[in-house]
Amino acid sequence: MRKDVAIGLPLLVLAIVVPFAWPTRYVVEEMTLFFIWAAVVTQWNLVFGVAGVFSLAQMAIFAIGGYVTGMLGLYLGWSLWLAMFAGGLAAVVFSALVGVACLRLRGAYVALLTLAITQTMYLLIITDTECFYMEGVTCRNFTGGTRGLTGYGDFGFHQLLPHKYAAFGDYFLALAVLCTATAFSVFIIRSPVGLAFKALRDNTVYAISRGIGRFKYQLLVFAASALFTGLAGAVYAGHFRVMGANTLYLSQTLFLLSMMIIGGVGQIWGPLLGAAALMLVDEALKEVVEWRLLGLGLMLVVFVVVWPKGLAGGVEAIARRWRRDSVRAFAAVRPEEVASAKE
């Protein structure tokens, strides 16, 4: 835990300083988006990496969070601050149902089912053409359809903050969600519950023979990973003032999946590292649009084949070697102190 604080705290300080040091619209905007995606990936990692359930439903859970928030704002006139938490809870319920649906399936079949769920949701939204209400002479669909759900407003930072700093509101809101999401995932991974998730992943038969109920803990990991995913969806909806089915594109799911894999599946700091790396690469490739997907695909292939433990695994290996070398160098001088240094 102390190690995690030592890694997390400097990153947090950095994230707080960045918008003041670099107050350009571009940086603030990109960082806000990075916080949102990174928050989703840290939670997805609990299901996919820690519990080893190959669910691809994370963006559907994200979309539930965003859409429920927007709809409560639009149809019931809720403040987004309140609607956001309802969106988070709706995401938890939805995700638990997905978890139940996946209970009898293993491996690739879980991936197929969850992908189908995401795709179905996408289709339901873009084929939604029925008039739900009239805005003047235009007909609006319940989900917003292909045009996206709009008209529910935002978090109101433009009224709260001076114009120059208005964009900081969403920035720090997204950062707050990412921070609590990260702290939550670290806590889960290090807690006995995380041990149960890993046990079921490592050897299901052995785990249930030692008293870990698969039903309960699979449900739990799906529910746990959904709260902050739903909140991230809500922040996304509030930030862009529109919630669209583009969040359910397969390419978006693959983009976040790449973040997790390149960062290091199941590793505590992998998702953050991967999200940062991919946002940077994506930025670099934006100039050459035709290469973007190819570049991301190639990176994914290279990591899966050559470096399956991802960036976090690589960093850890280097740190371990460095520590061993320093212990050895130390041993040359004072062998008697090495024993304690090793402990």
């Binding site: 006995p192 041990l195 149960a196 890993k198 046990a199 992943r201 490592d202 050897n203 052995y206 785990a207 030692r210 008293g211 870990i212 199941g266």
Partner: peptide, 17 residues
């Protein structure tokens, strides 16, 4: 075994669950 864990964690699984 639960191969991603330490020996103690393997046994703690039995003790805790």
């Amino acid at each position: 075994a639960f191969d991603s864990m330490t020996l103690r964690e393997n046994v703690v699984i039995g003790a805790a669950y």
